[in-house]
Amino acid sequence: MLNKTFGLAIAATVATVALSGQAMARDQIRIVGSSTVFPFSTAVAEAFGSNGNFKTPVVESTGSGGGLKLFCSGVDLSTPDITNASRRIKASEVETCAKNGVADITEVKIGYDGIVLANSKAVAPLNLTKKQIFAALAKQVPIDGKLVDNPYKTWKDVDPSLPDTKIEVLGPPPTSGTRDAFVELAMEGGAKEYDLLKDLSKSDKKAFKAAAHSVREDGAYIETGENDNLIVQKLEANADAVGIFGFSFLDQNSDKLQGSMVGGVEPTFENIADGQYGISRSLYFYVKDAHVSKVPGIKEFIAEFTSEKAFGEFGYLTEKGLIPLTDAEREKVRADALDLAPLKLM
C-alpha cells in the first residue's frame, strides 16, 4: 500500500518535470543583471505589466557581470532577453557573446547613478577630495617616495582639515558593480594626484591598477551590502562611520543621512545630472535582438523604458532615484533603441 503511494508520487513528480521541460516557448520577458539597475528595471516591468497587454517581465538581480555571462551564453529561449548593467559591456564580453551566437545586441543607456559617501546628520558633513578618499582607503599609500602600508588611523591623519574621528567606512564588497565603479572613479582618480603613482601609471599600468584598486584590509574599510537598508541603520547608530552606496539610498533617507562633498561638490540630483559631481556612472541595459521576434513584448518594453513618463526628467524612474540623461541624449537613445541599432564599442 504505502510503497504504491510513494511510487505514484514519484511518477507524478517525474511527469510534471518532463512536461515542464517541453514548455520552452515563452510569453514572458526575462531580464537579469545589475542590482543597481534592478529597482529601475522592476519599476518599468511593473508598469509594463499593469498595462495589461503583456505578462509582467521577470527581473533577476544577478550583478552586472553575472547578468552579461547569462545573456551571452546563447540564443535559445532559455537564455535571458535583456540584461541590465551598471557599467558598459566589455569588448571581451562582446566576443564571448559572438562566439555563442549572440551577434546582434542593442545597447540602451538609461541614465546616471551617483555613488555617495554619506554619514549621519548628527555630525558635520565631510568635505573630501578624491586624493583624501584614496589616502583614507587605499591599502598602500605613497609616503616619502615609497608605497607603504596605510598608516592613517583617523581622518585628521589624512588631512588636518578633517575631523579627529577614526576612519570607519562601510562599503560594498568586491563582487559589486558599485565597488568597481567607486574604485575606478574615486580611488583611481585620487591615486593619479600623487606624482609617484602618476608616473607609475605611465610606466607600469598593471602595477598602478593594483595599487590604485586595492582597498585596505586592516578593519578601517568594512565590507557590507551596497544597497541595503541595514547600512542606513548602522550609520544612524554610529555617527563616526561613513557609508558608500548609490544615490537613491541617500535620496530616500535624506532626513537621516547627508552626503559628503567630493571636490567641493555636493551629491545632489542636479550636480550628478550635469556631471559636476565626480563619482557618477552610466547605467545601461542590453537587448538580444534575436529574441525580439520570438518573445512578445520586447519592443514595447523598450518603448516603455525609454518613454518620457519613465526615464524622462519628471518620469517615475527619477522618483526611484535615477538621474536622467539630457533631453538631446534621451531623444537619441530612444530613436536608436526602437530601431534596434547595433552596438558600437568605441
Binding site: 510534471t16 514548455a23 509582467t56 521577470v58 533577476e60
Partner: peptide, 17 residues
C-alpha cells in the same frame, strides 16, 4: 537557479516563475 527575482504575478503552477 534564478528564484531571487522580481516577480509581480502570483504563480499559478509548478513551472510559473
Amino acid at each position: 537557479i534564478g528564484m531571487v527575482a522580481f516577480i509581480a504575478d502570483i504563480p499559478g503552477g509548478f513551472t510559473d516563475p
